[in-house]
Simulated assay, not measured.
Amino acid sequence: MTTADRPYHHGELPEALIAAGLRLSRAGGSAALTLRAVTREAGVSATAAYRHFTDRDHLMRDTARRTRRALADTMLETIAELGTDLPPDAQAVQRLRGVGLGYIRFALDEPGWFDLAFSMPDDPSAAPSDRPGPFELLMDSLDAMVATGVLAPERRNGAEWACWGSVHGFADLVARGPLRDQERPVVDQLGRNVVESVIAGVVAGSLDGVRLRPDGSC
């Protein structure tokens, strides 16, 4: 830079760089997150950034972790909006429904962050978060379905990948595939159909005694 770095108090620069990365990736996805662009956005030199991030991948991993946190927040918000005043077995299914719908909602509302969220693997040496991430929310919902008798234990193994693959595939079609130009009400309905199909497939053969919604879904 031809001008002096913007001053930051001790320890604030890493957070400022991640915040700059979030702003850039929100608008342009993972491709917009380069060290040059991020340091320019934060008002500092690349040299200053290298004191905290070894390279672009390091910065991307830390920024992507924040977008996954935002995704988890959207999932939790969607679960809450669907309602929690249900019997335990129906609530377990409702939680899985909220996880799926929240995932799709995030892809629609934040396509740039959705692109970044899974563009880099997490750092295995990073300190564990005290908040559940998207995958943990999915796992917890499936485990609750087993605990309440909705999902047969023998059908639990690997169920998370069937759920994740189906919903992520649809979300990707919406975010950057052939569905990206569809009107939002159409996509929302298609998303609900996908999630209900996922739920039906997961619990097939395990529904004895489960309380169903008026439309026949769990």
Rank of each mutant, 00 (worst) to 15 (best):
C163F: 03
S141F: 04
A42N: 02
V202M: 04
L137I: 07
A31M: 10
A19V: 12
V146I: 01
P178N: 06
T74S: 06
A117N: 10
T39W: 02
T54Q: 08
L108S: 04
L142D: 09
V187F: 09
T39P: 11
L96A: 01
D181W: 05
R56L: 09
T2S: 13
W164D: 14
P111C: 03
R213H: 14
G11C: 08
T3H: 09
S125H: 11
A171R: 06
Q94A: 07
A107F: 00
L96H: 00
I199Q: 13
P124T: 08
C163D: 11
V38T: 15
P88E: 07
R95F: 02
R61H: 07
R56F: 01
D188E: 15
V38R: 06
F170H: 04
A64E: 08
G169P: 05
L71N: 00
A37L: 02
A37W: 10
G165D: 11
A204V: 09
R211P: 11
L173S: 12
D73G: 09
E136Q: 15
A49M: 05
R97T: 13
D181S: 10
R213F: 09
D143V: 14
S119P: 00
G83L: 08
R97A: 04
S197Y: 15
T63W: 05
P185V: 02
R97F: 05
D115N: 13
L96Q: 02
A72H: 03
L35A: 04
G21Q: 07
R26N: 09
S45R: 05
A16W: 06
P7H: 10
F106K: 00
I199Y: 01
L86V: 05
H58L: 02
G100M: 07
E160G: 09
Q91L: 13
E77C: 03
L59V: 03
D188A: 15
Y103S: 02
Q189W: 12
V150N: 04
L137M: 08
P111I: 00
D181N: 13
M75Q: 14
L173Y: 05
A147L: 05
I79S: 04
D215F: 13
D55Y: 07
R26M: 01
R6W: 00
A127R: 11
L35W: 04
D55T: 12
L22F: 02
D5P: 06
A159N: 01
D109G: 02
R61L: 01
D208Q: 12
M75R: 10
A200F: 11
T47N: 11
G201H: 07
L76E: 14
R68T: 00
P214S: 10
V146D: 13
A20L: 03
A90K: 08
L82Q: 14
